[in-house]
């Protein structure tokens, strides 16, 4: 556990539709670092981000962000907190009615009364940072997946947040776009001191960018550490996950009854 943690999760238990997603989960996100959350599909990585932002509440436990217990915050307090958080959605979630410039300007227009000239300067500055100043007047439908991801990133950093949450930022990107996003995450972390949390499956990318990795399975943290040593820590979880084995602690088969019985063969277990 970390002394200087921006996010501190203790005993988080969440049950959705009868399925236990988190089972007394403990986890710290160190301030000023890039932390990767990894784990098999359906293990609740995006759900964890939603708990951190207060979009979801657990059945038990606490989620503290900068000392504030997120599930107990009122809607007004939660919105105040979210002005200090950037969130990059898996599908970018750009507002389709607005062009790139207006998408990035949207949070500024909603929360400030800055003069138009200043808004323009801030937006162009953020678009320059992600390499898309020239695309300011394009509509979201005219962007490639990688460009849309970078516009969403520009929007997420428009308020210079203390924390950015990236939900699968590398999915569907070609190697060039993937490296561009990697570079941006690292640069933002180093130049602005932003704490970054990313949910990802791409091991090579995570090894390049992350300072700390959590491996989540069965509702708990099953392994954690820096990415270089974690892959070789000898645990069956990391061996299966980082080795890409089809079967292991994470079963290949979704839980089901006896196969022979399901096919109607005599002698199958009832």
């Amino acid at each position: 556990m970390t002394d200087d943690a921006i996010v501190r999760i203790r005993g988080l238990t969440t049950v959705l539709n009868g399925k236990t997603i988190f089972d007394s989960l403990d986890l710290d996100i160190p301030r000023g670092k890039v932390t990767a959350i990894m784990g098999p599909s359906g293990t609740g990585k995006t759900t964890l981000l939603k708990h951190i932002t207060g979009q979801m509440r657990g059945d038990a436990g606490s989620v503290e962000l900068d000392g504030l217990n997120v599930p107990e915050l009122s809607r007004e307090k939660l919105f105040e907190l979210r002005e200090r958080i950037g969130y990059l959605f898996q599908n970018s979630a750009l507002l389709t009615d607005f062009d790139v410039f207006e998408n990035v300007a949207f949070p500024l227009r909603q929360h400030t009364k800055l003069p138009e000239e200043l808004i323009r300067n801030i937006v162009l500055n953020k678009l320059q940072a992600v390499g898309l100043r020239g695309a300011a007047r394009l509509m979201p439908t005219e962007l490639s997946g990688g460009m849309a991801r970078r516009v969403a990133l520009a929007r997420a950093i428009v308020f210079d947040p203390a924390l950015i949450l990236y939900d699968e930022p590398f999915v569907g990107l070609d190697p060039i776009a993937l490296n561009q996003v990697l570079l941006l995450i690292r640069t933002l972390n180093e130049t602005l001191g932003i704490t970054s949390v990313l949910v990802a499956h791409e091991l090579a990318a995570v090894q390049k960018v992350a300072d700390h990795v959590y491996l989540i399975a069965n509702g708990k943290v099953v392994a954690q550490g820096d990415p270089a040593t974690l892959a070789n820590d000898g645990s069956p979880w990391t061996a299966q996950f980082f080795g890409g084995e089809a079967d292991g602690p994470v079963p290949f088969q979704y839980p089901a009854g006896d196969y022979a019985s399901a096919l109607g063969f005599p002698g199958g277990k009832a």
């Binding site: 105040e80 969130y87 959605f89 750009l94 507002l95 929007r155």
Partner: peptide, 11 residues
């Protein structure tokens, strides 16, 4: 397309 959730996240 998560636009409503994105607004929530932008407060």
């Amino acid at each position: 397309t998560d636009q409503l959730d994105a607004m929530e996240m932008m407060a």
